[in-house]
Write a protein that binds this DNA or RNA. Sequence first.
DNA 1: TACCACCACTCCTCAGACAAGTAGAGAAGC
DNA 2: GCTTCTCTACTTGTCTGAGGAGTGGTGGTA
Lengths: 222, 222
Amino acid sequence: MAQVRRTPLADQAADLLLDRIRSGEWALGAKLPGETTLAPQLGVGRSTVREAIRQLAGRGVLTTRQGLGVFVTALDVPEEWDAVLRRADIVAVIEARIAIETEAAALAAERRTPGDLRALRQALAVRDRQRGEAAALIDADTAFHRSIVIAAHNPILAELFDGFTPRLRQAMIDVLRMRRDHTTDADQEAHARLVQAIADRDTEGAAQQSRSHLQTMKNALA
Amino acid sequence: MAQVRRTPLADQAADLLLDRIRSGEWALGAKLPGETTLAPQLGVGRSTVREAIRQLAGRGVLTTRQGLGVFVTALDVPEEWDAVLRRADIVAVIEARIAIETEAAALAAERRTPGDLRALRQALAVRDRQRGEAAALIDADTAFHRSIVIAAHNPILAELFDGFTPRLRQAMIDVLRMRRDHTTDADQEAHARLVQAIADRDTEGAAQQSRSHLQTMKNALA
DNA sequence: TACCACCACTCCTCAGACAAGTAGAGAAGC
DNA sequence: GCTTCTCTACTTGTCTGAGGAGTGGTGGTA
């Protein structure tokens, strides 16, 4: 559908530089041409080049030192999530969530502490109160799902979850706004059953509840 | 020992902003004051503020939109994988692999192309030939598991997998060296069964094979 | 040889100007 | 009353010109 959203020159310049770095034009530790050289080369102003460089510096690819120049400090860039998510289908995202969350739900059923359970029930209650705002509902929902992953007591799964769900916020809000319907009551019940399964230490049941809930979401979007 | 190296104003401004974000001054999704407001507030020029913002944007903390403003998209910079993995238990890693790979195996059974199948069988054959070197076996094994994830045709899962398995190489090699025993024949058979399930488009079977294989590994380590 | 002033080059910072995008207020037309 | 258009205020985006500040080399001097 090709959004009309045009990207700022600085972002384009950053992408261009990153491509040239990845292509091996400048080795690790090599010095880039000066800003005054780079600017006309990329066809943009000097301040734009500086912003592009800063952006890559924030990602750890470049390092600038006054009086010396700009240097390459990393070649790979952990394939930024934003880029991956832009290209990816929303269905693919749900599938990834199925993978992480069903396993997390099962582990949570085994390992949840009383404290986890409290947090879980509170998150559920908060989620129940959100019926108006799309953004607020998404935030409450995300917080609830996150508390399940936390209850699994597995830092890797937590990191995986935190790694890409925050970046989905806007997309989820848009989707929710698009389809203002059966999103509340049935969902809330499914969530409650999931919490109950975790409370009962029902490993199988927790995984199944989690899976079916997300599967419904996936089917609705596919 | 307090280096004399003075940091650029833009970096200081970025740190200052990040602190204020972390302190909760601006909630997730909230809009920051305009650059023209922020500049005198931080005591720097507008271009400097812009460079600070770009730096945080590169880290995924902020997002700018022309005409709208600057928004908080993450409350903290994502943690380094290496740091997470250093602290994490090897069991936690296996659990994360279970989450990703069983789901991937199921999807692969549905979506695998003839080409995927060829790659899968070749990776299996390569793995079969590796019986001596621990490092070579691990590499062949990783390649095999990766080809399953690739066959799932889900870029998110692939990215999750690639995100942390390469960093496990040394740890896996060490583990393998530690226990020089029943790691070959039974494993190889299990892998073959997994490939067969994917070839047969047996979704359930593929997931189950994958899970039980990794589960055995987990149990052996726990 | 050892020291020092100088210089060319780099990034750093600022200010000002204008372009471009967005949202909302208010007028105009139905 | 409702829709639609236009205008305005505010935002980030981009460019330019000007100096400041750090670094390393050059060449002169004792």
